[in-house]
Design a binder for these strands. Structure first.
Length: 678
RNA sequence: UGACCGAUGGUGUAACUGGCAACACGUCUGAUUUUGGUUCAGAAGAGUCCAGGUUCGAGCCCUGGUCGGUCAACCA
């Protein structure tokens, strides 16, 4: 029912089409096939949500299959972590499978291939084989062992299996087509010898199947109907199908591979190899460092599984390259935590506030609501006394018009407590503020219902009572990289873009005493600051909180904008001339030109004139015929023409006709430019 | 230089067999608010890479181009 109005992604279209073509829906079956060589990241979450989401939508089983065909890279630790992460995301797999469970079947099929003359044992070096492979534009040459007799192949393959050869000395290859335009079809390797203990099969095997040989056949064995993978496997599809053809029995279901684009996130990297590099170089503390885009990192940071699933849902799935802005992820976690996190008060950068007319030694216990978004979430108690901490940023001696917080002579509310008025400051020799003195209005207690408690003020501050506050360490995180797409630069390594300030540790933050009982996985909103959760490093005596994400902060934004404006603007990077033809740039700019006005319009016109210097008449001439309704393009053309004629280009009949047609156009720019030339 | 894939606001995705380009994030207003949060109301922002063609009508179909990506590991 909820689906009725929803639009489908292209994967769902494929399935719907199969269904309407008669594919029985009860045979739908999917799989998520990670290699256990690293931790899952938010990109995998897209694939997990896709496959398991499909399973939920079509009520079909989804297998978790570990693609464990390379014992040199894979470890049990990763298997465990992957299972933990998927379970945490809230998905249930139908079967826990391993490619290694199929080693015998795969071996038997390989023997069959040899017997049919479709596979042979090669004994060349990897260099020789690479050499013979050719290039994408030139065909390969056959191996000298390609025509080895079947009996000999059988015998050698048997010996490979028995461990009679050293690693790297022999291979089993499929005999397909060394001239195929698809490199993967040029006699791909089926088996290689690896002398390493496998995390499940131990030393039972010393020959291991390659990905292509194992993957499609595993799908087939499990009777997976739709096998979804990322775009870089598109070229493998032909081989996937070829391998399937060799073993396919028409009574059984034939799996179908389709590809989608991997999900990239801005300001981070998203490949296991690069994430491993961050871990190994100790840029981060581990795979679950809260700055990592791994599922475990996000979890430790305080993200909920709900928010990650929501993110995958909103980001969608398609076939084009993408870099999704982290702001979408942040939106998802804020939206979730806003409804669920308990509101508390904590002061991260304290300054002492003394309420001069509040009795010394007196303590009041105030009630504070746990979550205003959920009226039935109850309240908790907060002690209030004469000496408090407030944030240093919440006070300015002379705030000015747009400063809603505490300043001298001004009144603000202390959250859930009283109204106070700034009276004076105590400073040290060099002018640092040591204490702020204020007075409070005893009639204004929050919730008392008194008239005084209902006054309207612009500012409300959070606070903690100094004598009751508990200390804690707070870790704040910023993006790991300073560049939006750190791994998209050919000439630079992604490590060069690391943000040196991605972690800020506040050793002594002051929290309201309620937080002493916080436990792992509790989610809190430190009011006016952001969402926080306990880190796994936390102990009862030494609390450690992670900042998950800040609150939206229009005040901070205003402030930084002022700062940015007062600094000289960095010049726009030099035009990447030659990257794209000048004429193309002109077309790109000019199509939008009718939407512009004022300064922006001028800038656009000028940059067209600049590009025009690099356009030849031969390039421009075809555009004289541009349809009359495409005013923008025509403006670009006439501007370019203007520059050309100025540079000595002679007019021909086409030019004259074009100028004529512009003279009668409705658009003012077009007309006036044409008049200059008439 | 080959083969394959892709191109829709700043970002990510929609638009079922052609029919006024939609949604979300982000941005900007205003209102509300005991969080400069939330919520609510609204706005700006895309002539769908370019040029032709077919059509009454093209983001979608056809032709030609441009740009970007992928493919030549005994990795997956």
């Amino acid at each position: 029912m909820k689906e009725s109005a929803e639009s489908l992604n292209f994967i769902e279209h494929i399935i719907e089409e199969d269904l309407t073509n008669g594919f029985p829906s009860e045979k739908l079956r999917f799989r998520f096939p990670p290699e256990p060589n690293g931790y899952l990241h938010i990109g995998h979450a897209a694939s997990i949500c896709l496959n398991f989401g499909l399973g939920e939508k079509y009520n079909a089983p989804v297998n978790l299959r570990f693609d464990d065909t390379n014992p040199a890279k894979e470890e049990q630790e990763y298997v465990d972590a992957i299972k933990r992460d998927i379970a945490w995301l809230g998905f249930k797999w139908a079967n826990e499978c391993y490619s290694s469970d199929y080693f015998q079947q795969l071996y038997d099929w390989a023997v069959m291939l040899i017997k049919e003359g479709k596979a042979y044992v090669d004994q060349q070096t990897s260099e020789q084989i690479a050499e013979q492979k050719g290039t994408p534009s030139t065909s390969g040459t056959p191996s000298p062992f390609r025509e080895r007799p079947i009996d000999e192949n059988l015998e050698l393959f048997e010996k490979m299996k028995k461990g009679e050869f050293p690693a790297g000395s022999y291979l089993l290859r499929a005999k397909i087509d060394m001239a195929s335009p698809n490199m993967h079809m040029r006699d791909p390797i089926l088996y290689r010898i690896i002398n390493a203990a496998h995390h499940r099969t131990g030393t039972n095997w010393c020959i291991y199947p390659m990905y292509d040989w194992a993957h499609g056949e595993s799908d087939y064995i499990e009777q997976v109907s739709h096998s979804f993978c990322t775009l870089e496997f598109k070229a493998h599809r032909e081989l996937y199908d070829w391998y399937l053809d060799q073993v396919y029995d028409s009574n059984l279901l034939r799996p179908k591979q389709r590809e989608f684009a991997r999900r990239n996130l801005s300001y981070t990297v998203m490949s296991k190899r690069k994430l491993l590099e961050l871990v190994q170089n100790k840029v981060v503390v581990g795979w679950d460092d809260p700055r990592m885009p791994t599922i475990s990192g996000l979890r430790r940071r305080g993200y909920t599984s709900r928010s990650i699933r929501k993110f995958s849902d909103l980001a969608g799935i398609a076939k084009r390259d993408n870099v999704t802005d982290v702001s979408l992820l942040e939106f998802c976690i804020r939206e979730d935590l806003n409804k669920t996190a308990t509101r508390v008060m904590a002061v991260l950068n304290p300054v002492k506030l003394v309420i001069t007319n509040f009795p010394e030694g007196k303590v009041e216990i105030l009630e504070m609501e746990n979550n205003p978004e959920q009226p039935d979430s109850g309240t908790h108690e907060v002690p209030f006394s004469r000496e408090l901490y407030i944030e240093r940023e919440d006070f300015k001696e002379d705030g000015g018009k747009n400063f809603f917080r505490l300043s001298l002579g001004n009144e603000v509310r202390l959250k859930s407590a009283y109204f106070i008025k700034g009276e004076s400051v105590v400073k040290d020799d060099v002018g640092n503020i040591l204490e702020i003195h204020c007075t409070y209005d005893p009639d204004s207690r929050s919730g008392s219902g008194s008239e005084a408690s209902q006054r309207k003020v612009k500012g409300t501050l959070h606070w903690v009572s100094i004598s009751h506050a508990i200390k804690a360490e707070v870790r704040e995180y910023d993006r790991l990289f300073l560049e939006e797409a750190p791994d998209s630069h050919e000439e630079k390594n992604f490590m060069e873009f690391l943000n040196p300030n991605s972690l800020t540790i506040i050793k002594e933050a002051y929290l309201e005493p309620f937080l002493a009982d916080a436990i792992l996985d509790d989610k809190y909103q430190f009011q006016r600051l952001g969402y926080f959760t306990l880190d796994q490093d936390s102990t009862k005596s030494n609390l450690v909180f992670n900042k998950t994400v800040g609150l939206k902060d229009t005040w901070a934004k205003q402030n930084t904008e002022v700062q940015v404006q007062s600094q000289p603007k960095p010049q726009a990077p030099a035009q990447p001339q030659g990257q794209r033809k000048a004429l193309n740039e002109i077309q790109q700019i000019s199509k939008k030109i009718t939407n512009l006005s004022g300064e922006k319009l001028e800038t656009a016109l000028n940059s067209i004139r600049e590009y025009a210097e690099d356009v030849t008449f031969e390039e421009l001439e075809p555009l004289f015929g541009t349809a009359a309704k495409k005013t923008g393009t025509r403006i670009g053309v006439i501007l370019t023409l203007n520059v050309m004629l100025k540079n000595g280009q002679a007019k021909n009949q086409a030019v004259i006709d074009f100028i004529q047609s512009c003279l009668t156009d409705e658009n003012d720019i077009l007309r006036s430019e044409a008049e200059k030339l008439a």
